[in-house]
């Protein structure tokens, strides 16, 4: 039996010593500096020319609460429209038919290439181009009667969102392994059925976290609809300060509500992400 190898000499045995706790003095210093700055900002706001009593008074005003409801309703509906359009356009974009691909590419280019506020204004003022709209022989109506602020906002926000969602969906669909589509074809599925039952459900796993993010953005984007008279939160806050000149106070009221909504949605979105982005080893129904 061989003897245990001897170790070269000269190295001290420090196995009995413990490691001392680090002082992290630089971190404490930075933290203190930041706290001082934040406190100064807070104090400036408190002593500034903001009449906080107005903030408190209007925080739960009827018009404000109605505004929040309208904001959320529009956000949900426009997002739903955007998702439906996004799926349809993504499928068209990946179609073997060149006409469909071009239309899809054109739609995405047009609605991502122009500012959202411009699109909202165009929808609202559609009557300048088409005073009457309808289906020849079946139904016609004045464009101004159809394009109410609500519908203009819904179409403007939803169709714009669809252009962005379609890119997310396309990436999601392309991320599904090509073998899945082949396996679906091998059991006789046509393209649309394979997309619907096999590809899209798997794409959803990849797509839902970024869509959650888009929804949070949509909640804030609804504020643009204020210029076409949709009575969402910002619009209603503006009306109040148009009457009482308390501009900053009402903007703070609106800002606080947006912050509240987003602060609730963000952890929900993170939960969504964790549930869906779990590794392929943990796919639950």
């Amino acid at each position: 039996m061989r003897a245990a190898p001897t170790l070269a000499g000269g190295f001290p045995d420090i196995s009995e010593l413990t490691v001392a706790r680090q002082a992290h003095w630089r971190r404490w210093l930075t933290a203190a500096a930041i706290i001082v700055v934040l406190a100064a900002i807070g104090r400036a706001f408190a002593n500034g020319q903001i009449e906080w009593v107005y903030v408190g008074r209007f925080l739960t005003a009827t018009a404000i609460l109605e505004g929040i409801v309208n904001t959320m309703v529009m956000a949900v509906l426009a997002m739903a429209l955007g998702i439906v359009l996004g799926v349809v356009v993504a499928i068209m974009r990946l179609s073997p038919n060149p006409v469909l691909t071009s239309v899809a590419a054109g739609y995405t280019w047009l609605f991502r290439g122009t500012p959202l506020i411009l699109q909202l204004l165009l929808w609202f003022n559609l009557a300048l181009v088409f005073p009457t709209i309808g289906i020849p022989g079946l139904w016609s109506a004045r464009a101004v009667d159809v394009m109410t602020p609500f519908l203009s906002a819904l179409l403007g926000l939803g169709i714009n969102q669809g252009a962005y969602t379609s890119e997310v969906m396309r990436a999601g669909m392309l991320s599904v392994d090509a073998g899945q589509y082949e396996a679906a074809q091998a059991i006789g599925m046509g393209r649309l059925r394979a997309l619907r039952r096999i590809i899209l459900p798997q794409a959803m796993r990849v797509v839902i976290p970024p869509l959650g993010n888009e929804f949070i953005g949509m909640v804030k984007a609804t504020s643009l609809a204020s210029v076409i008279q949709y009575p969402e939160l910002l619009h209603n806050a503006e009306n109040i300060y148009y009457a009482n000149s308390r501009v900053i106070e009402l903007l703070i009221v609106a800002g606080l509500w947006y912050l509240l909504v987003v602060s609730i949605l963000t952890p929900l979105q993170m939960l969504l992400e964790r549930r869906f982005a779990r590794g392929s080893l943990q796919i639950a129904r």
Partner: peptide, 18 residues
């Protein structure tokens, strides 16, 4: 009463029949 953003917007709405 129907709100408008500015006087141009208001005349626009008048022209469209809103």
């Amino acid at each position: 009463y129907v709100p408008g953003e500015n006087s141009i917007d208001v005349r626009n709405q008048l022209k469209q029949g809103r």
